[in-house]
Amino acid sequence: MADLAGTGIKTEIKASRSAAASAFYGLSRQALAAVIVPAVGLLFWEVAVAAGWFSGRLMPPPSRVLATLWVLLKSGELFNHIGITTVRVFFGFVLGTVAATIAGAVTGYFGLARRLIDPSLQALRSIPSIAWVPLFILWFGIFEASKVALIAVGVFFPVYLGVSGAILSVDRKIVEVGRIFRLSGFALVRRIMLPAVLPAYVLALRSGLGLGWMFVVAAEFMGASEGLGYLLVDGQQLGKPDQIMAAIITFAIVGKVTDSLLLAATAPFLTWQDSYRRGE
């Protein structure tokens, strides 16, 4: 019996090691695939500038951009700018998401609310982001409140559309099945509506987060003295394209990291899905 137990434990250990190795291999392959295209693009960019196809003054090569990033990194400026911009995006994302989720749920679930509120929100959605800037400066001043408010506006509309549209697209037959089983209103929402809406909601959150990073640039144009948007403005005013490109690349990296964190945080809520190519 002891031998059998020992054999079973060894088999389980081998199986767990094999699963861990397979997961590590899968993650490594995904990471390698993710960097191939940027690496090829950067290499082409470097070669093109060295060959004189592009002006190195206006299109600084990656080597110069990396040198600028290294200088900002060593001085501690880069982390300071990243931290300030990320905090602004975080608070704007939270405020915009909460407001959009409530508004989307109300207009998606209640027909009267949809007829009363949705047309006005759709009209507001068409207003360019930069048009809000002078109004928010008058309302909130040039400090953090106006910047967070502008980011929240950018986050609000994609999340609102995602929530409202997802509720409206829930299959009527599924809801009728829940009513046949006499589920209460809360149970119907929890057991049928919520799982049906979650995939589209996660997608809407990702879209909202992406727009939050876009809107933070406009927000940091409003008299900011710190942040990645400030680096862009400072580079433009001082004629430093390498600093502008460094800020753009940093935006891309930090935005991708936050998107991956959002995906990781929401993945446990979608484990029930058996969608096409999920295992890849």
Rank of each mutant, 00 (worst) to 15 (best):
I253D: 09
P241M: 09
R57A: 15
R190H: 10
A252P: 05
P61Y: 03
S275R: 12
F91A: 06
I244G: 00
G111W: 13
G96F: 06
T11R: 15
V47W: 09
V217D: 11
W132L: 06
L168D: 11
A200S: 13
I167D: 00
A267W: 01
M222L: 11
A264T: 07
A15N: 08
F156L: 04
A20L: 15
T101M: 10
I151Q: 03
G6Q: 12
G92C: 05
L4M: 13
L161M: 11
L270N: 04
A123F: 11
G141P: 06
W45C: 01
A123Y: 11
G185M: 06
L183I: 05
G6L: 10
S63A: 08
P60A: 07
L95C: 07
G108V: 07
E77R: 12
V159Q: 01
V89Y: 06
A187G: 14
S164C: 14
F44M: 07
A100W: 01
F54Q: 13
P119R: 11
V257Y: 12
S225Y: 08
A247Q: 00
L121M: 12
T86Q: 08
A166V: 08
F90S: 04
A39S: 09
P62D: 03
L42T: 01
G210T: 03
L43R: 13
I142Q: 11
R172K: 13
A50S: 15
V202H: 01
T86W: 08
R278V: 15
Y25V: 15
V217N: 04
I84R: 01
G41Q: 05
A39R: 07
G141W: 07
F44G: 13
R191E: 14
L78F: 03
V35S: 11
S16T: 15
Y276C: 13
F79D: 09
V216T: 03
A39H: 04
A152T: 06
Q273C: 12
